[in-house]
Design a protein around this nucleic acid. Sequence first.
DNA 1: CGTGTGTAAACTGTTAACAGTTTGCGTTTG
DNA 2: CAAACGCAAACTGTTAACAGTTTACACACG
Lengths: 231, 231
Amino acid sequence: MLDTPPGSAGPIDIVRTQSLTTLVQRELERLILAGEVKPGERINEQHVAQRLQVSRGPVREALRGLERAGLVEARVNRGVYVREVSVEQAVEIYEMRGLITGFACARLAAASTADQRAELAAMVARMERAAADGDQAGYYEINLAFHDRLMQFAGNARAKAMYDALVKESHLCRRRSLFSPRNMAESNAEHAAMLDAIRRGDVDTARRMGEEHIVGGRRRFLDVVAAGTGS
Amino acid sequence: MLDTPPGSAGPIDIVRTQSLTTLVQRELERLILAGEVKPGERINEQHVAQRLQVSRGPVREALRGLERAGLVEARVNRGVYVREVSVEQAVEIYEMRGLITGFACARLAAASTADQRAELAAMVARMERAAADGDQAGYYEINLAFHDRLMQFAGNARAKAMYDALVKESHLCRRRSLFSPRNMAESNAEHAAMLDAIRRGDVDTARRMGEEHIVGGRRRFLDVVAAGTGS
DNA sequence: CGTGTGTAAACTGTTAACAGTTTGCGTTTG
DNA sequence: CAAACGCAAACTGTTAACAGTTTACACACG
């Protein structure tokens, strides 16, 4: 039979398995999170449509989705703007990230597999090396993956979705808090403490370490803000 | 001067201060949360457009927003459906609500005004009466307001937004967990315990009470599920 | 020279029409 | 009689055009 399961992507129509809106939304989100379109900037529907070779309909739909996601703001008859996250809002976001990270650590302390702990430990080791080498970009990336896996292992999909949304929002605060060598070492020491509590099955400590790690992140962030223009 | 501030709603053009998309989105959200459109049901774009006297464009945009909000699911070429929340997902949502409620209670224990505590206490008293009278609808409403104010007083807008989103999602689980007289009394006793810890400024206890209140809600919810079709 | 005004271009909000897919039903066929 | 086929209606995805608002710029005026 030449039948293909309805969900399978046939080799013929490589497109059409998802709507243009979805593709536009993904591309716009990428542009925003990568900083290619900066907070406060306006997004011109027509330009986007022309650039992506679609009409304005899908673009408008995509923008509505991004609005609910908190990445853009729409002003009536005035267009949509990439959202600006104030320092106050960033602090709120840090608090929520801390709350959820603490939850995840507590969960892992209560129930985690040896494989999971080993994977996290390997990442901490890699960050240790990156910190020693002063490799900020490398550290940043592994750090992201570490928190991502941590949330995944915690086994609460809703928690992970919320955490991911918060991380995206964080990117909208102009200050991109860079990791100084000292900050990298400090941050990773906290990672190690989290993992240690998880290994020992110490739920309360794991939770506190997870929360404090993000609080530490907030402090490091505020230091950069206070330092003036930063970076 | 006849000038009107840009934000003020002039008496002439009562409409046009917000887009049709926004109005459609609000109406659809209302229909979904009120249960007039049930989880799993399909939403017909044309019918909605005709019913609200608009074209399909704004309707599609509104649906995209609701999709990101987790209220509907879009299947390509097949339309959008009101999302169905499984019991497992509902449990995850309860966990997150508990986490955030605990956070809010801790915050209020650390810093709250006498007015705020008095307002919350008044609500607990009103729920007490509703519980005694077996007034489920009344209890439900005050309970909603109680948690709403609690989150507002906590002073973290992001936390409140997340909590509100979670409550909306809760409504998508078929089982509408009703408050039996016994459940109402139990639930309100937990409210009182939360408030008591807040009054005493006992941060840790307040947090634990807040979390356990939602855990209690989850248990009451699961009891209804286990009881079969429920009501 | 600065300020206010009017006009035109640009852009958003909305609608209607077109294209392709899914779905339901009646018919045919083994 | 059950299953498969085919056609038609319904619906979604997309596009293009229209209407109204905002914005920018040039010009007149004090």
